[in-house]
Design a protein around this nucleic acid. Structure first.
Length: 428
RNA sequence: GGAGAGUUGGCAGAGUGGUAAUGCACCGGACUCGAAAUCCGGCGAACCCUUAACCGGGCGCGCAGGUUCAAUUCCUGUACUCUCCUCCA
């Protein structure tokens, strides 16, 4: 959520920044007009409330002396109904202001390339050179996985539907090896391991910015009075951990990491990545979340991204880093680096991690603050990044480490996590 | 799932219709070479409006409604915590 006071003070700047995110400047004009009416009403109703408080004191005094206060009571009855009326009007205006405000995305940082979609993202660096497949055509990971008997999409479709998968045998083992490896690495970098709830309430979904705009992408369960949503990412329970809390300055920065399943309905993505592990309704992801002081958040974003890159480097998977353009970054993000891993069969880089600095945007929604040495309150800055999407990592390993005979070599760092297995051959 | 109790400022803890005691903590001062103890004074959350700022005002007793001139107090709903029962992994 954006700071309404800042919009009030620098409306032209806000309009320009939000225009980079395809927001019509008229929205800001509407917002400011509603806000002006709102503030005018506040003054009116508070003036009446002050009067009510004063006269009520008089009434109390008169009553104590067994006097007659009928006149004042009649007067206050009138004032009371005026207040009720004005407050009702005010509530409508508050809702209208809020309706716009909670749907405005974060301001893009000045270092973010301006553009409306993924064609305008900026490549920062390429790391490692994709392997050459001179002696055979690289297979798609779903073909490799099915032939090796470690992935079963067909039966998952029977049991659940499309975009689900069974991992079997060494496939399941590989998934487990990967996320254990990732969690261990992040722990070494100072992230505290968390195992959070996978079902969260609406306040949490609002806090991290999924609600109210992106309800369609999620799965909601249970009855209407107490709806819970299956987390689309561990960012939600990790960032809401300190919702409505005031931290002490000495507690910052806080680093969390968690492995969780993620559930996404992927509404509107029909026809994209219909095969394989790339786009699933349920997938595992190791997530990193940080709560930091505002002045450090840009350095922390670089470190966070480096921590995610470290995983790819240790797995020896070629990737590149791109900065998403202003129109392509997520709702809550001021700046996002995507890590895209090389997929040999598609001969292209595919997203495997997304690292964002959300500045104070989520902190303001979720009321996450800290008290400085002078006792003053500030919003923290929150960051999150995948480190990494586990299913996509499996896909990348299957494709990059495949051999001509259809077997797949296990990346060296994972061998200890595979109980010494160095190659998946499909033989039992 | 059932029964009961609770939720008040950083913490503890009063307050059953007249607008939030008190203690600890905290800040300032006195005393002291200094500190502790003691004494005096002050502040008591967050949020909103107003202001250049101070001041001022509103709001505020888990949350949301209702009754009333007036609600921490009465009514309704609800969340969470604790205890007991039931069930269960």
């Amino acid at each position: 959520m954006l700071d309404l006071k800042l919009i009030r003070q620098k409306p032209d700047w806000a309009k320009q920044k939000l225009a980079e995110r395809q927001i019509d400047p008229k929205e800001i004009d509407d917002l400011l007009e509603l806000d002006a009416r709102r503030r005018k009403l506040i003054i009116e109703t508070e003036t009446l409330k002050k009067q009510r408080n004063e006269v009520s004191k008089e009434i109390a005094q008169v009553k104590r002396n067994k006097g007659n206060a009928d006149e004042q009571i009649a007067e206050m009855k009138n004032v009371g109904s005026q207040i009720k009326d004005l407050d009702a009007q005010l509530e409508v205006l508050n809702e209208n202001v809020r309706y716009i405000l909670v749907r405005l995305p974060n301001y893009p940082d000045d270092s973010v390339p301006v553009g409306k979609d993924d064609t305008t993202s900026r490549e920062e660096r390429k790391v490692m050179t994709p392997r050459k497949f001179d002696d055979f055509e690289p297979q798609a990971h779903w073909d490799i996985g099915e032939k090796l008997g470690i992935l079963d999409f067909k039966r998952a479709a029977k049991v659940s539907g499309s975009r689900f998968v069974y991992y079997k045998g060494l496939g399941a083992r590989l998934e487990r090896a990967i996320y254990n490896f990732m969690l261990d690495e992040h722990q070494k970098e100072g992230y505290e391991e968390i195992l959070p709830p996978y079902l969260v309430n609406n306040d949490s979904m609002f806090g991290t910015g999924q609600f109210p705009k992106f309800t369609d992408d999620t799965y909601t369960v249970l009855d209407e009075e107490n709806p819970l949503t299956l987390i689309p990412t561990a960012e939600v329970p990790l960032t809401n951990y300190y919702r409505d809390d005031i931290l002490d300055e000495s507690q910052l920065p806080v680093y969390f990491t968690a492995l969780t399943p993620c559930f996404r309905s992927e509404a509107g993505s029909a026809g994209r990545d219909t095969r394989g592990l790339i786009r699933m309704h349920q997938f595992n992801k190791v997530e990193m979340v940080k709560y930091v002081k505002p002045e450090t958040s840009w350095d922390e974003l670089e470190k966070l991204t480096a921590d995610a890159e470290e995983i790819l480097q240790k797995l020896k998977l070629p990737y590149h880093v791109i900065t998403l353009s202003s129109g392509d970054a997520s709702f809550t993000s001021a700046k996002t680096y995507d890590l895209e891993v090389w997929m040999p069969e598609q001969k292209t880089y595919r997203e495997i991690s997304s690292c964002s600095n959300c500045t104070d945007f989520q902190a303001r929604r979720a009321k996450i603050r800290y008290r400085d040495a002078d006792g003053k309150l500030h919003y923290v800055h929150t960051l999150n990044g995948s480190g990494l999407a586990v299913g996509r990592t499996v896909a990348a390993i299957l494709e990059n480490y495949q051999n001509a005979d259809g077997s797949v070599t296990i990346p060296e760092v994972l061998v200890p996590y595979m109980g010494g297995v160095t190659k998946i051959t499909g033989e039992k």
